[in-house]
Design a protein around this nucleic acid. Sequence first.
DNA 1: AATCCGTGGCG
DNA 2: TCGCCAAGGAT
Length: 351
Amino acid sequence: MQAKEFQRRILQYYQQYGRKHLPWQQNKTHYRVWVSEVMLQQTQVTTVIPYYLSFMERFPDLAALATANQDDVLAQWTGLGYYSRARNLHKCAQQVHFELNGKWPSNVEALEQLPGIGRSTAGAIHSLVTGQPATILDGNVKRVLCRFYAIEGWPGKPKVHKALWELADKLTPAQQVDHYNQAMMDLGATLCTRSKPQCDACPVQSGCAAFAAGTQKNYPTSKPKTNKPERSAIFIVAQYKQQILLEKRPEQGIWGGLWSLPQAEMDTSDDALASCLGMPLPPVTIQSLPAFRHTFSHFHLHIHPRKLVLSKKPRGVMDSDRWQWQDRSQLDALGMPGPIIQLLKNMEPAT
DNA sequence: AATCCGTGGCG
DNA sequence: TCGCCAAGGAT
């Protein structure tokens, strides 16, 4: 099948079945499309929608986001994952608002220089907002292309990745690129799905190499397996009256920039727990709460909570701005990891 | 180039 | 219960 015919069918598919009523497809602006594209990185539409609506209510425009505190931005992102996206989103807003006078770059190359915007996201923003030509290559497009051309090899491999970009470039039309790109993502998300693809309804079935061979399920080639290591840590729930001691995590690393519980090595004794927080007084009680496991993108973490009920609020090390006592009823005001929120929510109220 | 970075849904 | 992976980018 020639590129022209492929494009014609994809555009026809868009007319009939393309998604046109997603929240970020209404009142299209750079700001609204950009926020949606970043939220949609590695994240499915149904997960994003409630976050997107809430985010737009809290930060209706670029100025609102650029002038907000990072804590407020991360609080909106809580539970969505990949928190560097939120930090970069905030940085990017500040750059465009303060350094570019609110004017978004008018070409893909300049868009790609902004924090959190890579090649595919830049192409998506540019094409979807302006309608001008730009290539995208997200997970949906990759899956469609891998099947259509029966491409062997995991798409994460640089060689395969490069080949996919070249094919994507070659197939992208000069006209109606916004419709074409949207349709390719819709096709991948609704018909050419990972499991049980609905090939009967596919507009490019007749040219699909995988369909012809009946090997749709073999594409894209899956990632080589690597076992995730198991890690364990003590999480300290230091409670004074109705307040919990929180520690802001460093920007780099897991849960970067979020407020979490102070951590300790597994072999830390109960006596050492209090002192490692610099507490002058021993806590009234130390109680072990049920451990649970949380899985990240690349390791498992066994969380062993220790509850320390304090009779007096300690002073000292916690005077730095990375420490904060937060009222239990106001935990959602800060960006916090989902599992930590759950842990604190499940805990019985203090006596 | 390979690794790091979350979470939820699915079979 | 568990492995897989989904609208990727940064280092």
